[in-house]
Design a protein around this nucleic acid. Structure first.
Lengths: 210, 210
DNA sequence: GGTCAAATCTAGCCATCGTCAAGTTCTCGG
DNA sequence: CCGAGAACTTGACGATGGCTAGATTTGACC
């Protein structure tokens, strides 16, 4: 078993990588530190050294996830300034980082009051909210808050349903395109800046980037 | 241990009840047949007799959940004919039957191709869809489908976020009222029949039934 | 070149769980 | 009233997993 050098170099990162893959396969609850160690090719006690216990591992994953989400959202906002694209980025994140996404919104599995995870979560919520307020700058106060929650609910719901496979297969396999189409139904603000309903249903998906 | 009679009467129903409570406490993945038996006051092998294994138990819960959801949706549709209330009913179901809801949308935990659960799921999806098409009867074809998915995504997302405690506490504790407010942002169809945005934010919540 | 702390391993304890096999008690149709 | 089968129990086995303790290696720094 001395193929690998004693010091892995960056075992922590490798463990997080393997854990993500494992979660995608068997779900966040069925991860075991021993199996994780097996996959990483280290002893069964090594993970505990880095994360303490299973809760610690999932807390680390959630933290990483919130940071990744925040990055992706702010980048989408910078690029287009359009809320729609921020929503699409949300869905895209959920699909490409399914493991993280699943953990992030299951606070019973990790330590939601951990300082790091709190900060990371804060980052992503402000990113999302600024994306929404950019879409309807006129709206303020409770009106804006409600619109914000509606938009968040929609993209979050779409992402969840997509991941669990609950959506009809007729939507195709491109989650981002489908999300763009569905989220376009939502018109934000007194005069919606989002696109109206769906004149352009199928050609839009065909013309969608990627 | 001979307090209870040998035959429980309707142990299967009782086990489902206890399982729901257990899931609400520890999550669907951490349920154990033994602990379930303990709570029901029966021997540790009794649950296996009824459900075979854990997958069987969760399949039964999912089936029950889809039936309950279908009932609740059709009743809401009958009562008001308004889509908004169907959406609110969706959220209300998720909150009052959190355990069922959590299982239903985690198909990796049960047997999603089971005949019973398929039929039950079919019931609830048609109920939801007929509620949405009732809101915008003019829309047909892909337009209607997109609107339907948007509405579903929104109420599903709101319910999920509410359940996981991700939503701001300022929303209060009445999920149905909050859902009614948020879902009102979504205007369906070419001329939305849903209420517009949120003029009435706080007074609506105060005046909301229940 | 020696020392020290962090990183990793080996070994083992204990709890829990799923499942099987075989026994016991109830119910109900004939 | 009786026999068959369903409903439940008891007991035990093997697997898995979390966690701890103590040894061992390694890189870094003086």
């Amino acid at each position: 078993m001395a193929d690998r050098p004693y010091h892995h170099g960056d075992l922590r990162r490798e463990l997080l990588r393997q854990a993500a893959g494992m979660i995608e396969e068997v779900g966040p609850a069925r991860v075991s530190l021993r199996e994780l160690a097996r996959r990483a090719g280290v002893s069964h006690a090594a993970p505990a050294h880095h994360f303490g216990d299973k809760t610690g591992l999932l807390t680390a994953i959630a933290t990483e996830g919130f940071h990744l989400l925040a990055d992706q959202l702010t980048e989408a906002l910078k690029g287009t300034g359009d809320f729609l694209e921020v929503g699409v980025a949300y869905v895209e994140f959920a699909v490409t980082h399914r493991a993280h996404f699943e953990v992030m919104f299951r606070p019973d599995l990790y330590e939601p009051d951990d300082a790091d995870v709190r900060a990371a979560r804060q980052r992503s919520t402000t990113a999302l909210q600024s994306g929404i307020s950019a879409a309807s700058p006129e709206a303020t106060g409770p009106d804006a808050r409600t619109a914000s929650l509606a938009a968040w609910s929609m993209v979050h719901g779409f992402a969840s349903l997509w991941i669990t496979g609950a959506l009809p297969t007729s939507l195709g396999s491109d989650a981002a395109a489908a999300a763009r189409q569905v989220a376009g139904v939502l018109t934000l603000g007194p005069r919606g800046t989002g696109r109206h309903s769906a004149q352009r249903t199928d050609d839009e998906r065909a013309a969608a980037p990627r």
